[in-house]
Amino acid sequence: MSRLAIIVTICVVVLFLGSWIFKALQAQDAGVDHYLLRGFLVTCSAFLTLAILSFLYKDNPIYKFAEHLYVGISAGYWMSQGFWSTIVGNLIPRLSQSLSGFFKQPYNAGEWMGGFFYTNWVFYVPVIFGVLLLMRLSSKYGWISRWALAFIVGTTAGLQFIRYMRSDFIEQISSTFVPLLVDWQGIGHFFSNLSLSATGQLVAMVSNWIIFLGVLCGLIYFFFSKEHTGLFGKASRFGIWILMVTFGASFGYTVMGRVSLLVGRITFLFRDWLGITS
């Protein structure tokens, strides 16, 4: 360990302890129960935030510490959530009455079909495939896990086929066929009420024209079996413009989302940790 690393580590530890004591005293004054723990947790949260932000300087050991901790905690979090919500919440109540009783979950009794098939037996299928998936850890029998993988892939393909066909294809096409003459009461009425009001007839009509032509031209841009020249090329060009607006809007929204997260973290540091702002 270099001298600099030792000095930095000592500084971080001293700052951490100082912050812990300070926050614990603050919590004690505010009459918070378990003020020592509260002080530790707020300090921990602040230091982890700063550790991640330290990446802006460069990749460093403090950032790596926080990054590795994040990986470990996230894995543990999703495993626990999956166990309690899916295995205990959905699987056990269908497979075992005694285990349901142990976990205090309402038993979900199945039905006998034709007197020889119990409907809940089908829930052994994912259990078997789940166990087969764990065979991946074995170097000799790892190939058996492909069966479970095939089941997952087949299920996804079957479900997504229908879902995307309905929501991303048929629904989107049907929603594109909008009235191009909105609230039409004759040309005289149209010109006498001409305005750029956000709720006006002209804006509504222009919007619908853009939706209809935009989708059409956007699709033309994605159609590569014909050369983009002439009228087809012009439509494709308009399609690119529409797509550029979409990318710009998505970009704007992404920036706003990230900045609001950053504001949240900065607010935490300055208000909850340092107590500088109220």
Binding site: A75, W78, M79, G82, F83, T86, I87, N90, L91, F123, V125, P126, V127, F129, G130, V131, L133, L134, A148, F151, I152, T155, T156, L159
Partner: peptide
Amino acid sequence: FFDIIAVFAF
């Protein structure tokens, strides 16, 4: 079924 196998994957 997918969710259950996903937990085993976790």
